[in-house]
Write a protein that binds this DNA or RNA. Structure first.
Length: 314
DNA sequence: AAGGGTAGCAACCGCCTGTCA
DNA sequence: ATGACAGGCGGTTGCTACCCT
């Protein structure tokens, strides 16, 4: 091949940085300070583009960079901030001194995301996630079972005619979930408009930057098991009846339905609003596939607190 | 021991935004 | 007002070390 041509030699170098290049960059910046990245490579004697120099400096060579394992505290901070900000790595990095946005992004993608998935939490929405297939089969079996055994049914739904409607609605919802991408504002609108039962799909959702209220979601899911008043404006995507917990081995998601709100529940039972029936689906202990976005479904059973009528699904 | 698969991470790429002439 | 440019950001890629069979 012979020696490389002069055009090759003058080409901008890519790939990993050598210790010599690092030394050149560091000594130049020590003398002149960072910035002027476009002219810096030439002045520093580097065959790199300015961008590459800037990245190398900010992500690796900068003296104030913290190295090593992320602490639990840092991890917690990242999760909290990500819940509020989404993939705004630079904004998150501001709150973690010594950590770069790139490092945080990498740590999120390689560690935290998987950890959350293992816990049954959607790393995009920070809400409990449900496997669509599991949910579908669960619902089908549960609802059919409920028709034949009205006294032993999930969700406290005792009226078979209602269940037919529910089943139809579920099927429709499932179909929609498989074809629509998730729009938080639309979902919110739906929640606000629909005083009956709404099943909202969550699919392939890109974390919306403006989705600030999402931060409430997880807490509500984790802590709220009653059916008392809870403004949907407080947590746009949170149903009133959902709860989730980790039993140590598996993550479980369930619905607590106010029995007084459900058809077939005797009005003479005088069940208070905070009484509920619960159905749980085990969603944990699955391998971490990165396909969570395509087969996830989040169900929100939704009603108006003040609506004491049975569901009208006609 | 070897080689195929995978995880982790540094670096790149393309796009966006802010600034300035 | 606008176009050029620098810097910044987030998504993605590709290399390498490690693991497992």
């Amino acid at each position: 091949m012979g020696k490389s041509s002069s055009s090759e030699e003058s080409e901008v170098k890519k790939g990993p940085w050598t210790p010599e290049e690092d030394e050149k960059l560091v000594s130049y910046i020590q003398a002149h300070g960072p910035g002027k990245w476009r002219t810096l490579p030439k002045n520093a004697g580097l065959k790199r583009c300015g961008k590459s120099c800037r990245l190398r400096w900010t992500n690796y060579l900068r003296p104030d960079i913290k190295r090593g394992e992320f602490s639990l505290q840092e991890e917690e901070t990242i999760i909290q901030l990500h819940r509020l900000l989404g993939n705004k790595w630079s904004a998150i990095a501001i709150h973690l001194p010594g950590r770069t946005d790139n490092e945080i992004k990498n740590y999120w993608n390689t560690h935290i995301k998987k950890k959350l998935l293992r816990m049954g939490i959607d790393p995009v929405t920070h809400c409990p996630r449900i496997n669509l297939l599991q949910l579908s089969s669960f619902l089908t079996s549960s609802l059919f079972k409920s028709m034949s055994q009205p006294m032993n049914i999930p969700f406290g739904l005792a009226n078979p005619s209602i269940n037919h409607e529910l089943l139809h609605q579920l099927n429709t919802s499932l179909s929609n979930v498989q074809t629509e991408s998730y729009q938080p504002h639309q979902a919110n609108q739906q929640l606000q408009n629909d005083h009956q039962t709404s099943f909202t799909g969550l699919l392939n959702s890109t974390p919306p930057v403006q989705w600030q209220n999402n931060g409430e979601c997880l807490e509500n899911y984790l802590n709220y098991t009653g059916s008392g008043d809870q403004s949907i404006n407080q947590a746009p995507l949170t149903g009133n009846y959902s709860s989730a917990f980790n039993d140590g081995e598996n993550y479980k998601v369930g619905w607590n339905f106010s029995s007084s709100m459900l058809p077939g529940t005797s009005s003479s039972s005088s069940t208070p609003l905070n009484s509920s029936s619960t159905a749980f689906i085990n969603v944990g202990s699955e391998d971490d596939k990165e396909s969570y976005g395509s087969d996830m479904l989040m169900f929100h059973h939704h009603h108006h607190h003040h609506d004491n009528n049975a569901l009208n699904l006609s």
